[in-house]
Amino acid sequence: MRVLLANKFYYRRGGDCVYSIELENLLRAAGYEVAFFSMDFPENLENPWNFYWPSEVAFSPKKIAAFFKAFRRPFGDAETVKKFTSLLDEFKPDVLHLNNVHTQLSPVIAEIAHARGIRVVWTLHDYKLVCPAYTCFCNGKICEDCIGGDKRNCTAKKCLKNNWLASKIAEKEAVAWNRERLENSVDMFICPSNFMKAKMEQGGFDALKLVAFHNFVDDSKFSHDNMERENCYCYVGRLSAEKGVETLLQVASKIAIPLYVLGTGPLETELKAKYVQSAQIRFMGHCDWETCKSILLKSKFSVVPSEWYENNPFSVIEPLCLGTPVLGANVGGIPELIEPGKTGELFRMGDAGDLEKKIRMMLDKDYSFDVEPIRGHFSKDRYLEQMMSVYR
């Protein structure tokens, strides 16, 4: 079987990129022929197929020519069509597997492949197909106005980066690549959570074209020496509004137990200044995996306080694979990963009082569970078997 993967970037920029590269490695290791289609970008990794990648586009209103070039890209510009068609001619895939392709590439590649009789599948890393702004999160709150509804809400509320122009482009993109058009050229949409599958159905997508299974993890990441748990807990993730980290820090400032905060983001400076007097809150900044792992292993539990529709967060999966319980917000795909009372607990999203209650409860309780079934559930072998059933 020959599989052509597509993602807008080809370096470890975010979860979609990491997944795409890891899937490429997984398929190749299993003996499949794999090619990759992406946008040309300075930070991309080397790839033998990059000759066929369309040039970089950047949305910068200060550079008019560059802006109009970028504006055409989401709708299927000539360069993308020509280069993708040439790649199909050369590689002759059996399957086109899309990932994050909006804006810097285009769903037009699904139509081109489908017209040639190539099976098209699409792993959904966000809510872009039902929400023009990707996140179902607007102005600090969860928003479902566009799910199955009028996409002009995106512009009216300036949902994308609180910017009218960016929101208008997202609206036009959503109208152009509507549900009917996408369903006509995609054989199966892969949802990494049951929650996302439900949101796609809510948006009108055919349930027969939707399948839900969780993403995979690299088992080798979780090898470690035994460590003693300390009387502390941690947060690993981006310091941004939708992650609920400020609600967590408000609570943590009242609890005289160390909280390790691993990560950076737009709220970093503000949060450090606000909680500089709270000695128990320890900002660690960006940390490599070995540092994250050591803190997860010594912590009594990890907190995932998100205030948006998390999909299939590794911030839940990775601690559980290490045997570290997780206290998660009862929102999005988080609840389907945590077994309350056994592998962690859930609290009401955004409810500081309930969060404090659950933190204190988990600090006083010992959790012990077998990690092998959890690792097995997220294993590469299991995932490959599920993916092959979709490909075929």
Results as ranks from 00 to 15, higher is better:
G14N: 14
D218S: 09
P373Q: 05
M388E: 15
S253M: 01
I112M: 11
L267A: 07
K168S: 15
R392N: 15
E171S: 03
V390W: 04
N178E: 09
M39K: 01
N194Y: 13
G328W: 06
W53R: 02
I169C: 01
V211W: 00
T269I: 12
C136H: 10
L259Y: 13
E290Y: 02
K172M: 14
Y275C: 07
I147M: 04
L182A: 11
Y383E: 04
K151C: 12
Y233D: 08
A329W: 07
W308K: 06
T155R: 10
K243N: 07
I334N: 09
F222D: 03
C138F: 14
E228F: 10
N231Y: 05
L5C: 08
G350E: 11
P93I: 12
N312I: 00
S220H: 10
A115K: 15
T85A: 14
A252V: 11
L105S: 03
C292M: 13
P325K: 10
V175Y: 07
A30C: 09
Y11L: 02
L239C: 09
A256M: 14
A66H: 14
S299E: 14
D126V: 03
F59G: 08
N330A: 15
D351K: 08
N50V: 01
D366E: 15
G323K: 00
V390D: 09
N215E: 12
D364L: 08
I118P: 07
D225V: 07
D89Q: 06
D225K: 05
C191F: 01
S220M: 07
R12F: 00
V251H: 08
L165R: 12
C287A: 14
Q202L: 15
N178H: 14
P93Q: 04
I142Q: 04
A174T: 09
Y235R: 06
V211S: 06
R360D: 03
K243E: 05
N330Y: 11
V186E: 07
S315W: 00
P54H: 03
D16L: 01
G285V: 03
N312G: 09
E33L: 00
M227K: 15
E290V: 00
L327Q: 12
N226L: 10
V236T: 08
R12M: 00
K293T: 03
A170H: 03
S20F: 02
K221H: 06
K62Y: 10
V18Y: 04
K172R: 10
R179M: 13
H114Y: 13
F347V: 09
K92P: 09
V130Q: 06
N184Q: 15
